[in-house]
Each structure stands twice: as C-alpha cells, then as structure tokens.
C-alpha cells in the first residue's frame, strides 16, 4: 500500500502530465468531432509551438511566458491557410484520404524542422522562478509542474466559458451536434471550422511549448506522441471537452501511478486500460454512440 505522501505525488504528477496531454489533445478532439477530420498532423502544430518557443526565448530573448502565448497565436494564425487550402478540400473525403494527407504534412514538417533546427534535441531555458521545488505541506513538488497545472486549470475555465456561455461556443456545439441543422439556421459553418481549427492548433502549440520540459524536443515530436493524443481523444469521445479532460486525467494519473507503483508493467497498463474502456464504450467516455 503506497503511503499518503506517495499518493499525493502520484496525483500531483499525474495531474501535471494530464494537463499537458489535455491542452494538446483538446484541439484534436474538437476538430475531429466538429469536422470529422482525422488530423494526424496535429502533433506537427504542437511541435511548431515547441520550436517557436525555443526560437523566441533564445534568439529574441523574450521571456518564457509571453513566448508561449506568442507561439500559440502565431501557430494558430499560420494554421488558417492550411485549413482553407488543404483541409477544407477533404472534409467530405474518406478517413483514408485525410490520414494520407495529414501523414504527408507531418512528414514534411519533420523534414522542415530538421533543416531549420537540426536533428539534435533542444531544450528551453526556464526562468528561475519556475525551477526548483515548491513546498505544499505534505510534499515538495516541482514548481514547473505546479505552473503547468495552473495553466491547465485557467485554460479549462476559459474553454468552458467559451463553449458554454458565449455565442460562438453555442454555435460550435450546435455544429458538432448536427452540422446540417446548424447550417440551415444560418450559422456560417465554414468560418466556424476555420476558427476552431485555428483555436485547436494554437492550443496544440501552447501544449507543445509546455511539453518540451517533459518530453524534450526533436523533429520527430510531430509523430512520436501522436498515438497518445489520438488515444485520449478516442477514449474521451470525439468533440467532447469534458471527455478529453476526463480521459487526460484518467490516463495521465493511471500512467503515472502505474509507473510509480509497478514500473515492471511498462506501457502495458495504459494501453490495456484504453483498450478496455473502448471495448465497453466504443464511442469513448462522453462520445455519442
């Protein structure tokens, strides 16, 4: 039986991990739910965020926090032409075509990042305020992870408000529920698609910037963790904000707990759990059957 302190650590580290997973995956979930688009290039947007943060902090000397925000905005804006020129042509195409197009884009992004940044792993120098440990009473925890949790919670609050309380959020929900109906009552679904795509990509970039500290950053980031993001999206249920959040927390905490308590089991645990959930609820925890 793990001690109380150990359980706190598992929950804390698991939550921090879950927040990174959530921030990156949520965009993927919304685009998949809203547009029915299997976007395997989503990891590439996250990677772009990571590299931009590196460039901004290193070359331009911009502090870490603003750099995160700027990177998210740039990637979000830069994703719009992709959506308009490439993705929008394939909304009605089969999943297969979408997979092919986006794998192609992911490959190209890997090559481009190799050309610009080289193949070696890069790191981000954190401000000293975010390094070191934080005493939370029962336990000392890494300050950076506490910071990630705070960012995650703030984002969840903002996203929740946007989706549940604003006009645009209502439109997005309507379009996820029934695209044709939404269109017929005068919602400009095309523009909505572009907007959510940019939002999702921007969030991915933000998550990518945050993830560098944990996962490191090489050009293959674009595909390395993709499976994990897809798993979270499908376990949570397509297009469901709540589902993505719950799936991130469940998979994140179980992964960390499994590693802490029984490291011998390896990655077995997390995939078995995902498999079990999907066998029982094929549309995911909060997806519509």
């Amino acid at each position: 039986m793990p001690s109380f302190a150990a359980i706190i650590s598992i929950l804390f580290d698991g939550l921090a991990y879950a927040m990174v997973l959530f921030i990156i995956s949520v965009g993927l979930s919304i685009t998949m739910g809203l547009m029915g688009f299997v976007n395997l290039a989503h990891g590439a947007f996250a990677m772009a965020g990571g590299y931009l943060v590196v460039s901004l902090t290193r070359s331009l000397g911009i502090p870490f926090l603003p750099a995160l925000v700027i990177a998210a905005v740039i990637v979000g804006a830069a994703s719009i032409p992709f959506e308009r020129i490439l993705y929008s042509r394939l909304y009605k195409a089969t999943e297969l075509d979408q997979v092919l197009l986006t794998i192609g884009l992911a490959f190209m992004s890997i090559a481009v990042c190799t050309m610009i940044y080289g193949p070696a792993p890069l790191t981000i120098r954190l401000p000293s305020i975010l390094t070191g440990q934080l005493d939370i009473g029962v336990r000392t925890v890494p300050t950076y992870r506490a910071f990630v949790i705070v960012v995650g919670v703030v984002l969840i609050a903002v996203l929740w408000y946007t989706f549940e309380r604003t006009n645009i959020g209502a439109k997005i929900r309507a379009a996820v529920d029934n695209r044709r109906m939404a269109q017929s009552i005068g919602i400009n679904v095309d523009r909505l698609f572009t907007l959510t795509f940019a939002l999702g990509s921007g969030l991915a970039a933000l998550g990518g910037g945050l993830a560098v500290q944990t996962f490191g950053l090489t050009p293959s980031f674009a595909v390395l963790y993709l499976v994990f993001f897809l798993l979270i999206v499908s376990v949570g249920g397509l297009g469901s904000l709540k589902g993505t959040l719950v799936a991130s927390i469940v998979l994140g905490v179980f992964d960390v707990g499994g590693k802490y308590l029984t490291p011998e089991a390896g990655g077995f645990f997390i995939y078995a759990l995902a498999l079990a959930i999907l066998l029982v609820k094929p549309a995911g925890l909060y997806g519509r059957e």
Partner: peptide, 22 residues
C-alpha cells in the same frame, strides 16, 4: 530495478524518480 519506458518516446520521468526519491 526500474524499467523506464521504451527507447522511442521519452516518458514522463517524474514517477520513476519520485519512486527512487521515496
């Protein structure tokens, strides 16, 4: 003796290190 994930992806190392720390 702790196996720490696969050579392909870098895992979140924190749980392994926490285990050792404890």
């Amino acid at each position: 003796s702790i196996p720490m994930g696969s050579p392909a992806q870098v895992p979140d190392m924190a749980p392994f290190f926490q285990r050792v720390k404890d």
